[in-house]
Design a binder for these strands. Structure first.
Lengths: 345, 345
DNA sequence: CTGAAAGCGCTTACAG
DNA sequence: CTGAAAGCGCTTACAG
C-alpha cells in the first residue's frame, strides 16, 4: 500500500508538499500539483486514516447512540439511522453505531478514547441517562429529539406541538367539532421516546382551545385491540367526525380496514389525518392526508449544527422544524347532519 | 486529558512499562503494576484510540455494510445490525455503519484508508456487487448470507434448505399430504436478499420428494392481497391441510386473522408453521410453531470467524447453522376425513 | 512556492 | 523486570 512517502519520492517533492497539494490547504504550483496528482493516481494512493487521525485534530468519525427498546418502531428507527449516516457522509464523516443497553458506557468509551469527534443522540426520552452524560462530556453533541431538560444542549426535532395544532386546525377549519386521536400503544407513553407524548398533549390542549371535543385512545401491536380502540373512539359522544392517527403503520392499516368493514366512508363520514408517519400514506386505501416525520431534513439539520460546533462553540439551542401538511383527499367537511343518537345514561 | 506520559511520570516508570502493564503483554512486577494502576485511575487515563490505531496493527473498528432496499424488512434488518454490533463488542470492536446506495464506495473507502480491520456484509443478494469487491479487497471479511458464488468467501447463515425440509417433514410426518407456502412479496424474490428463494425452492423440492402437494403463493404489504393469496392457497386441489409462512410479521398476523374470520381452526383444520421469523410467534393468536431466524447466533458465529481471520488466514467456508423447531401447538394431524369437494372443471 | 522537522500518542522490538 | 528509542503515517507550524 502506497504511503505519502512513495508519492513524494515518485513526484520528486517533499511529503509536506504532497500533503498540501492533496488537501489544498496551501497553494501549490500547477506543475507540481499535476505531478503529485499523477503519482498519487499511479500508485493508487489513499491517505491512511490512522495517521491522519493522529496528526490532524479530527477522526472524521461520529458516534450515533441509537438504542432499540421493545417499544421502538423499527422502520422509523431505521429511517433515522439511515438519514444520520447519509447526512454525515456529506461532510465526509463515518458513523459508529452504539446500540448497547448500557448506552452510556459506549458514549464514555468513544469520548474518552477520542475515537469520535462528535455525538448524535437518537430516540431521546424525557428522562434520558445519556443526556446527563452528554452534558458532562466535553465533546460536541446534537440530539435528535427533545429531552425534558434541554439546558446546555443542541436539539433538533420536528415541531410536534405545531404538528398537533396543524392537525386540529385542519379539521376544525373544515367544521369538525368532535375528534378522536388514535395514539401509540400504552408502553410507548410510559417508556418510549417522548414525542408521542408531546404530540398527544398538544393535540388535546389545542382541541380544547378551539372548543373541539377530542377522545384519545391508544393503539396496540394486536389488531384486535386496535379495532376495539377505534370502536371505542367512534362510540364517543358527540360522535367524532375527524380522526388523527399517530401510531405505527400496521395499526393505521388495520384501522382503515376496520373502518371500511364498518362501512365508514372517508372523508364523507370521517375525515382522517395520519401524523408523524415515516411511511407512504398516499398509497393507503384510501390515501391519507399526512403530516410526515422527516428523518432526512431533521438529520441534515442536526449534522449541520454539529459541524458548526466543531469550528466554534455553538450556544445551546432547540431547533424545531415546521411541520408540513400533505393533502391526499381524506379530509373534508363533517357529514351535513349527524343523526343524533338516543341518550343513554 | 491525561496521556501515557502523565501516567508514566506520576508512577515513576517509563511509558513502555505503562503500556505493558496496562496491556499485560509483558510481565510487570506487582509493585510497579499497582503504582501504575493507581496513577492511571487517579488521572482518569484512557488510552487514546488514535495513537493506538497508528502504533498497533488494529483500529478495533469493523465496517458493516447493510444497505436498506425498499424490500428489506426493517425489523429483521435492525435485529441483525444490533446483533452484529453486540457480537463485535465482545471482542472490543466498534462498528462503522455503511448504508450508502453505492455500497461499494464505502467499502473501498474504509478499506483503502485502513480505517476498518474487517468487514461484515449483511443482506447478501445472489448477485451482489459488494461480493465481487470483497474478493478483490485485501481485507478480512465475513458475509451473513450466501451469495450465488461463494468461492473464496467466508459465509455464515441459517441453513434455510434444512429449515424448509424441517417444516415439510414436520407436516408430512403428521400425515399431511397437501401444503401451502405463503412466501414473501414478489419483489423480494426479484431483488431482495436471497434466502427467501433458497427457502422456497428447498421447500417445494422436498415436498415433491416426500410426495406432498404444495402450492406457493406470495404475500404483500397490502392485507387485501394477503387474504386473496390465502384464499387462493386454500382453494387449491387437493385442499392444503398445512400452511408454512415465510414472510413479514404483518402478513402473518393478517393471515391468522383471516383464517379466524373464515372459521378455519388451527390446528384442527389447518396446521401452521412460521419460518425464518425474528418476531415472537408464541404470542400470536393462536401461538404458532416456529423455525426462527437467529440473528444473535448467526452474528456471533460470523464475528468469531472474522476474528479468527485476523490472526491466521482462514480458508473459505460456508457455515450453515442448523435450524431449530419450537412447538407451540399449531401443528397436528390433518382433519380425520377431508370432505371431498365437488369436482369443477 | 517549497522543504525539513516536530509532533500527534501510542506499541513493540531491541537492550540490558 | 524495566527503559530508551524507533516508528506507525500523517499534518502543520516554522523557515526560507
Amino acid at each position: 500500500m502506497a504511503s505519502i512517502h512513495d508519492v513524494a519520492r515518485v513526484s520528486g517533492v517533499s511529503i509536506s508538499t504532497v500533503s498540501y497539494a492533496l488537501s489544498g490547504k496551501r497553494p501549490v504550483s500547477e506543475a507540481t500539483r499535476a505531478r503529485i496528482a499523477k503519482a498519487a493516481k499511479e500508485l493508487g494512493y489513499q491517505p491512511n486514516a490512522r495517521g491522519r487521525m493522529l496528526a490532524g485534530r479530527r477522526t472524521q468519525l461520529l458516534a450515533l447512540t441509537a438504542p432499540l427498546h421493545a417499544e421502538t418502531s423499527a422502520p422509523a428507527h431505521m429511517a433515522f439511522v439511515l438519514a444520520v449516516v447519509t447526512a454525515a457522509r456529506r461532510y465526509d464523516y463515518d458513523v459508529i453505531l452504539l446500540t448497547e443497553e448500557e448506552a452510556t458506557g459506549g458514549l464514555s468509551r468513544v469520548t474518552s478514547s477520542k475515537l469520535a469527534d462528535g455525538i448524535v443522540v437518537l430516540d431521546v426520552a424525557i428522562d434520558d441517562h445519556r443526556v446527563d452524560l452528554i452534558r458532562d462530556l466535553d465533546i460536541p453533541a446534537v440530539l435528535i429529539g427533545v429531552p425534558g431538560n434541554t439546558a446546555g444542549l443542541v436539539c433538533v426535532d420536528l415541531d410536534f406541538e405545531a404538528a398537533a395544532r396543524l392537525a386540529v386546525d385542519q379539521l376544525a377549519d373544515n367544521g369538525h367539532t368532535s375528534l378522536a386521536l388514535l395514539g401509540e400503544p400504552h408502553a410507548v407513553y410510559e417508556r418510549g421516546s417522548n414525542y408521542p407524548r408531546r404530540f398527544r398533549d398538544a393535540l388535546l390542549t389545542h382541541a380544547a382551545a378551539r372548543s373541539v371535543d377530542c377522545i384519545f385512545v391508544e393503539s396496540s401491536k394486536n389488531p384486535v385491540d386496535v379495532r376495539a380502540a377505534i370502536d371505542t373512539a367512534l362510540a364517543a359522544e358527540p360522535r367524532p367526525t375527524g380522526l388523527v392517527m399517530q401510531c405505527a403503520e400496521p395499526s393505521q392499516v388495520t384501522t382503515l380496514e376496520h373502518l371500511a368493514a364498518r362501512g365508514v366512508r372517508i372523508p364523507a363520514e370521517l375525515s382522517v389525518i395520519s401524523a408523524a408517519s415515516t411511511f407512504d400514506t398516499s398509497r393507503f386505501t384510501p390515501p391519507l392526508d399526512v403530516i410526515p416525520l422527516v428523518p432526512a431534513e431533521t438529520s441534515d439539520r442536526a449534522i449541520d449544527l454539529l459541524m458548526t460546533t466543531f469550528s466554534k462553540r455553538h450556544e445551546p439551542v432547540v431547533e424545531l422544524l415546521a411541520p408540513r401538511y400533505f393533502a391526499n383527499g381524506s379530509v373534508g367537511p363533517p357529514p351535513a347532519r349527524s343523526i343524533p343518537r338516543p341518550h343513554t345514561n
